[in-house]
Nucleic acid binder design. Sequence first.
DNA 1: CTATGTGCAAAATGTTTGCAGACGA
DNA 2: TCGTCTGCAAACATTTTGCACATAG
Lengths: 141, 141
Amino acid sequence: MEICITSLLREKGFKVTPQRLAIYNMLASTHSHPNAEMIFNELQAMYPTMSLATVYKTMEILKEIGLVKILNAGEDSFRYDADTSDHPHVRCMECGQVEDVDNIDSVDFVKQVAQGTNYKLVNQQFYFYGICPSCQRKELN
Amino acid sequence: MEICITSLLREKGFKVTPQRLAIYNMLASTHSHPNAEMIFNELQAMYPTMSLATVYKTMEILKEIGLVKILNAGEDSFRYDADTSDHPHVRCMECGQVEDVDNIDSVDFVKQVAQGTNYKLVNQQFYFYGICPSCQRKELN
DNA sequence: CTATGTGCAAAATGTTTGCAGACGA
DNA sequence: TCGTCTGCAAACATTTTGCACATAG
């Protein structure tokens, strides 16, 4: 995996820097879909000179080489996901956490949309909104 | 339709103002999914004192009373849609326009997701990305 | 050695807020 | 008349940019 990002960066003419590796590894090791600030805060301890600008610039590159997806779950900030497979996300309207929805087969749905439009489709994003199990329990009180 | 927004506003304890009617009517009469600034610019001619802040405040209210949906198509700004039915949107990655995808049956897909998660789902948004017919033609040159 | 990358601060962008005067009910 | 609304300007949050210095290759 580290090999993957290293060679991918080199291949596309980008330099391999400790910051880029750290940012990607942090993202790849979580399912929390952090935004730039969360990533920045997390890396502060290990990389005290890390800057938010570097996080943003790195994400742009990682998106370009296909290693991350940028999520837009109706919030003020973008979130990032190292899982680039096509899967829906669900956000809790109470606590704001964003989770993956796995094992969903969207082929038929996508095909239906492809036929219903004259666009040359290349990508899609599905967002669901609701209340997570934990917040449902809290609401009972 | 005008009756609808008027009575809905009153019902929920909001006042009916020319600005609110103008903003809603403008949005209801287009399929372009404008953002706040587009709406503001459009209304400038008729309402020279209209302010951006009023557009934002009004959208918040219209969302609350269920007359508009707020779209998040991976851009820097939010777009607004007076068609509150559950339908996917497709954005052209070339020219940036956002269109409705009509006559799509998402029931099975949504049901699948509902079963695959423990959330109490209340809403969803589907975004597709691609190249619109007009931009496809341009690319041939 | 050279071109690219980093980190800081400043700028840009989109949205929200506070408040004085205006206005709907 | 009274409470809400408008419109302006200022505040705010997120993201982008410019540039001097650092560093990967």
